[in-house]
Structures are given as structure tokens and as C-alpha cells.
Design a protein around this nucleic acid. Structure first.
Ligand SMILES: [Zn+2]
Ligand SMILES: [Zn+2]
Ligand SMILES: [Zn+2]
Ligand SMILES: [Zn+2]
Lengths: 144, 144
DNA sequence: GTCTATATTGACAATCGTTCTCAACAATCC
DNA sequence: GGATTGTTGAGAACGATTGTCAATATAGAC
């Protein structure tokens, strides 16, 4: 009988996973898997695209990175403040500038809404999108 | 000279668009475009898949239906309470039961967060996922 | 260090939702 | 009816993501 627990992905430390984690450290906004794969190639790191996807999924499952699904269904990844726990994002549509947001009041509200309607195991997604000051300034400069 | 404004998609009333709108009336939860296409076929309505996608997009652009993007990137569509304006959703992961939520306090909070960080044209996505009472009961019955 | 078991990798195929193409068609207006 | 032009549909194309599986690298035991 297999009493041994099934081991999760991401057990071994490899050059590829280290590289994916490293490239995530270099940026501060949400990036697609293909973006990150390109960045790795430019750095000379040879990592297969499938491995980038696998590493990202493992890191996301482990709670080390956040995933944001765009309106057209693409997944973007970001290394968020470690140990920050649950939080949300304010994201610039122009340049991708991302600000982490905590809102205990909203967390309580979401939990209450679920309970009031008899729902259990409630989770939620909440993201704010807008145009940051820098991008507004740039647009104004171009229009001149 | 073309002084006439470019007309948006959805100008003409066709059998196909009427059919797509009708099938959306028959369900109360979020459905994928392919789901709706299947429903139409079963009803004997002959509508091309591309037309289903086009109709849904037109209706969404017009604000007549809501789109919910799942974690794996699929778009789901739902006819929400007409004239209800901006709102959010509480969705059962099991059966898809959907409840529309209004939360003016959260709207104000989101707007404030954006303004405080210098963001303009702020929008947001907010959805709550859980397991409804019925689905909990069903699970309990099956485990017996 | 060597050996072994097995987790991991990568090139490529495959999948799947969605959009594009464009000739045939049909709604609207005269 | 006829002209105009938005709309349709079958299939190809697309793009992100996942599956395949033989070759490889890692961690641990010896
Ligand atoms: Zn910006
Ligand atoms: Zn939250
Ligand atoms: Zn349910
Ligand atoms: Zn809102």
C-alpha cells in the first residue's frame, strides 16, 4: 500500500526554477508567462516554455506569486510582498504599475455577503484598473 | 465626405440575434458561448458559433449582458437584471447559482483607493465564489 | 564519490476558446 | 422590386496553455 503521501510539484531545486523566480524578482508588475520566457532568453537562461508555465503554476499553488486573469483570458503573474497574505491590486492599464491594496473592511463585507446567502467556502476576486498619473501626463504630452 | 457616424455592430434585427437573446433569457446563471450554442442547436435554431460570439460581444458592449472570466480564462455570459446598472455577483462553484450584489460602500471605497493613488478612469472587478446551501446539502447526501 | 530512484525538463504535438476570412445572404430603405 | 450594406456561416487561423515522453538532473543512500 502506498502510505507515502503524493509529493507536490516543486520539490527539487533546479536551475530552471531558480531562473524563473529570479526573473520575477526583476519586475514589479504583472507579466505573462510568455513575457517571462522572453526575458529569460534575453538573459541567456535556457528554459523551456512549458517549464516556465509549470514553475509559475507551482509557485502560484504554493502561494508565492499572484495570478491576474485579464479580460481576454490571459494569465499574468507577479511576485507580491512576501508574507503579505491576502490582498488586492490597483493596476494601471497603460504601464502596468501595480499597487497592493489591503482592505479589511471589504474582506469582512465579502464574508458577510456570502454567509447571509448561505454560501460557504467563500473566496473572492477584486481588482481595480485605472490610468496612473504618469500615464496621464504622457498622454497629455503626446497630444501637444 | 463621411459625416455620418460609424454605426455600431448590432444595428439590424436578425433571426440569429433574437435567438441568442432568447436563449439567454431561459437561464439564470453564467454560461459559456459554446454552451449557449449547444442550447440553440437543441432548440432547432440554426446559428453559427461565430455569430453566437459576435452577438454576445455586441450585447456585452451595449451593456445588456455581463461577462465573467473564469480562472482558466473562459468567458461566461449572463443576462442580468435590466436597468440594474453596475453590480457584482455571488456565484456557486457547484451549480452556478448566481446572486446579484449591490454594495455602494464598496463602490465608494474602490473609487477612493484609485483617487488616493492618483489613478483616473477607475473600474473594478469584484466577484464572490462559494458553495450554496443546496450544493452543501447534496454533498452531504452523497457522502452518506 | 558512486549509484539509484524518480522528479524534472524540453521540443513538439495537441487542445481549446476565440477571432478572422470572405463569399453568400438578408434586413432596411427608396 | 432593386440597391445598399450590415450580417452570417463554414472553416481556417490564432494564441495561450497543457500533454507527451524520452532524455536528463537532482536528492539521498551507500
Ligand atoms: Zn501607468
Ligand atoms: Zn480580499
Ligand atoms: Zn450550488
Ligand atoms: Zn462595483
Amino acid at each position: 500500500m502506498a502510505t507515502e503521501a503524493r509529493r507536490a510539484i516543486g520539490e527539487r531545486s533546479t536551475r530552471q526554477r531558480t531562473a524563473v523566480a529570479a526573473v520575477l524578482q526583476e519586475v514589479d508588475d504583472f507579466r505573462s508567462a510568455q513575457d517571462l520566457h522572453q526575458m529569460l532568453r534575453r538573459k541567456g537562461e535556457r528554459v523551456g516554455l512549458a517549464t516556465v508555465y509549470r514553475s509559475l503554476r507551482a509557485m502560484a499553488d504554493a502561494g508565492d506569486i499572484d495570478i491576474l486573469v485579464t479580460a481576454d483570458g490571459e494569465s499574468l503573474y507577479r511576485r507580491c510582498g512576501q508574507g503579505a497574505g491576502h490582498h488586492h491590486h490597483l493596476v494601471c492599464r497603460g504601464c502596468g504599475l501595480t499597487i497592493e491594496i489591503s482592505a479589511p473592511a471589504v474582506e469582512r463585507w465579502a464574508s458577510t455577503v456570502a454567509v447571509d446567502h448561505g454560501f460557504t467556502d467563500a473566496q473572492h476576486t477584486l481588482d481595480i484598473f485605472g490610468t496612473c498619473q504618469d500615464c496621464v501626463d504622457q498622454e497629455a504630452a503626446q497630444a501637444r
